[in-house]
């Protein structure tokens, strides 16, 4: 192994870890929703991307500055998250978990079709910031745009942790995830907690979608599948229901993706990332941080 290979490897690893924070956010979103409802919302990645398009629309309509585009992407995705809750989860019977799961698959395809129709399937430019800035650490360069992505995602996580651990809303959310029956008997309205969780998860997804598009500089409908699949792999690796697990899982997926990109090329990259999914599901189905603690 020569010096240049090691540098290339480290460079891939650093890029991957920085970008992996977007997968971590998507993973956290899956985990939050699963935590309060014990249901998987497969439309989540598509809803996040659709929200990101709302930012694009603002950018096209009145040439909105990048921070406003990012903000509208996040909020738009929060709103779509709440719509998904009402369409797929609020009124489907709780005793048939398949109903909401299939509804969310249908919603995934529906949102995808709407986005393709509205955008004519064409990629749009998405604002990217600090594109030309780099920080040089010896021969490894840290890209400014990726550092920005990383920074925004870390701030989003910090705000989420503050919400979950310091505010009544967060405590109510955690109470519902741990003991839904006792939480209801503490006067907590589970519907309201579910609604807010979908909204907050949606905002996180919108941030992840915006940052993904910002890192690439374009937005296209195919990003939705990547967000969904990589986010799911992140939670499988980390353990569904664990927020620290989703963060670690997201970083690992980001790192693995870039290392496979270096070693095997762009067309083979995702094949190996998918193999990670089966590896974990077979050998460690609970994930790294999977809790065995049950609830009813």
């Amino acid at each position: 192994m020569d010096y240049f290979f090691i540098i290339d490897f480290l460079q891939s690893l650093v890029d991957g870890l920085l970008f992996g924070t977007t997968y971590a956010l998507i993973g956290i979103g899956f985990t939050l929703i699963f935590g309060v409802m014990r249901k998987l919302n497969l439309a989540y990645g598509a809803a996040a991307l659709a929200g990101t398009y709302i930012g694009v629309a603002a950018s096209l309509a009145f040439d909105a500055p990048p921070p406003l585009v990012f903000l509208l992407s996040a909020l738009g995705s929060g709103v779509i998250g709440i719509l998904v809750y009402y369409c797929c989860f609020r009124f489907t019977p709780t005793h048939y978990p398949m109903a909401s799961l299939l509804a969310s698959v249908g919603m995934l395809l529906f949102i995808d079709e709407v986005v393709i129709h509205a955008s004519h399937g064409m990629p749009f430019p998405y604002p990217s910031v600090f594109r030309d800035a780099t920080i040089e650490l010896g021969d490894v360069w840290i890209r400014g745009d990726l550092l920005f992505v990383f920074g925004i995602c870390v701030v989003a996580m910090a705000v989420l942790f503050w919400l979950l651990y310091r505010t009544p809303l967060g405590l109510a959310t955690r109470a519902v995830s741990q003991q839904p029956r006792a939480a209801a008997l503490c006067g907590i309205d589970p519907t309201r907690v579910n609604l807010l969780t979908f909204g907050i998860a949606g905002i996180l997804g919108g941030i992840a979608g915006a940052m993904t598009a910002a890192a690439v500089g374009v937005i296209s409908p195919i990003i939705a599948m990547g967000l969904t699949v990589k986010g799911l792999i992140a939670v499988v690796i980390g353990g569904l229901g664990s927020i620290p697990g989703a963060i670690i899982g997201g970083l690992l997926v980001g790192a693995a993706e870039n290392v496979f990109l270096l070693l095997r090329g762009v067309t083979e990259r995702d094949i190996y990332v998918m193999l990670l999914l089966f590896l974990f599901l077979t050998l460690r189905p609970g994930g790294l941080f999977g809790s065995s603690a049950g609830r009813d």
Binding site: P168, L171, A172, Q178, Q179, C186, G187
Partner: peptide, 26 residues
């Protein structure tokens, strides 16, 4: 509850806070 159903990951004080708040938020 006969079989205890506390919010195990929350602190003792937070368990009470959740109950007090869930009630008052209405």
């Amino acid at each position: 509850f006969q079989n205890i159903r506390l919010f195990g990951n929350l602190t003792v004080a937070q368990n009470l806070w959740v109950a007090q708040n869930g009630h008052e938020q209405r």
